[in-house]
């Protein structure tokens, strides 16, 4: 199984493992980088989820590929999943 890993935070970074990566594509003439990492509801530590480090650096890897280096732009939570939005 492929591993989607996102590392967010500056001084004390937190590593979160996701199961799906959405919104990334490489069109001619630019790069679509509004990327969403979808994780299980329990994948993000509770204190980080309560007070998400918005604006902190965020790195997304898919297996061994560095997909994006950006910042945490938003968090969406539902009963089914946590979605971390990384922009870069």
């Amino acid at each position: 199984m492929n591993a989607v890993v996102v590392v967010v935070g500056g001084v004390h970074p937190v590593e979160v493992t996701g199961y799906r990566l959405e919104g990334y594509h490489r069109p001619l003439g630019g790069e679509g980088a509004n990327l969403t990492v979808v994780c299980a509801p329990t994948a993000v530590p509770a204190p980080v989820l309560t007070y998400p480090p918005l604006g902190a650096p965020g790195t997304v890897r898919f297996d061994d590929d560095l997909v994006l280096f950006g910042y945490l732009a938003g968090v969406d939570v539902s009963a089914d999943a946590v979605q971390l939005r990384i922009e870069g």
Binding site: L54, G55, Y71, A73, G74, V77, R85
Partner: peptide, 11 residues
């Protein structure tokens, strides 16, 4: 049917 979100754009 709850959902919660927060985003940097609002800060």
């Amino acid at each position: 049917g709850w959902s919660a979100s927060c985003e940097l754009a609002a800060v």
